[in-house]
Design a protein around this nucleic acid. Sequence first.
DNA 1: AAAATCGCCAACCGCCCTACA
DNA 2: GTGTAGGGCGGTTGGCGATTT
Length: 329
Amino acid sequence: MGRPPCCDKTGVKKGPWTPEEDILLVSYIQEHGPGNWKTVPTHTGLLRCSKSCRLRWTNYLRPGIKRGDFTEQEENMIIHLQALLGNRWAAIATYLPQRTDNDIKNYWNTHLKKKLGKLQPAAHVSSANSSMSRDRWERRLQEDIQTARQALSDALSSEKSILLSEPKPDVGPRKKHAQAPAYASNTENIARLLKEWNKKSPKPAGRTSKDGSSSESSISVGSLSSTTDAPNCYKSEIEGMGDLEPLLGLEPSMELSISSEVSQPRASGGTSPSPCFFQNETKPDPSVLDQMNVTLSSFEKWLFNDVADSLCGRSEFHLSEQLLEFFSS
DNA sequence: AAAATCGCCAACCGCCCTACA
DNA sequence: GTGTAGGGCGGTTGGCGATTT
């Protein structure tokens, strides 16, 4: 007997969210706060299932979300964290508080995977020989993760100070919509922006926007991250929402949970993620690291030295060179 | 100019974990 | 101890725009 669906399928709307739906949801959450998603559809009148509401909020409407335009720093962080944590997108997202796990996952799948795929010498991933047992590999990982945890924490601390002290103009967004990022600081702003937008663009609902350029955009508030999309009267307000300190706080408990997760994959036995920056991000062959004749200590050294370097401003990060150097060590 | 293909990403699906009765 | 519901998470898909043929 399978688990029943989270909501009655009949009469439940699916597909892209409209601005009107966004407003309803944001208004409700503004009033009641997020949570108790089960009741959200009934209270808001939204013909969406609770899960869809939660997803919409956490991925797009939630304050403090930065959309698109991954910086090189973020890119490097994702690469390193993915190498360390595997496909634990939620865990990775905790280190990039402005990004959602979905966003990071998409970015990985569409950009970084290809990037690394090109750089990755095929010989290194062939798992022809498997000398190290999984147990042994995990034990070693568990030991090294302690050191790694500390190093990562240090590296992130330096990033925090950098980000809070000065924006780095030279490490800006690299994609086409290279505007200064702005953040909706609270649901009130979101609601106001949505309303203002709606006034200006009373078009029927269409596909949710990707970059906010479409007038039938759902705004998705995520696109509020582009100040050019926001009504002029709110631009300065948005740009002033730079209070990221609480968002960048790194909690020790978080680190602990992440590190323990690494050594204790989900019990499903299915796609238990694990450290891997190889093409199949599922469980790596434990022999891979061994095969490369690399201890995790040097592995983590590579990881965190680079994180620290790039975060401290010495961001001459040549991924290919470092990978090659690493692989050939 | 039209058709075919590719790339991107928002949203969905299904599984798992946890809290609670 | 067991069943159920809510929520979290990762994998996958569908649809649209962009690019290529």
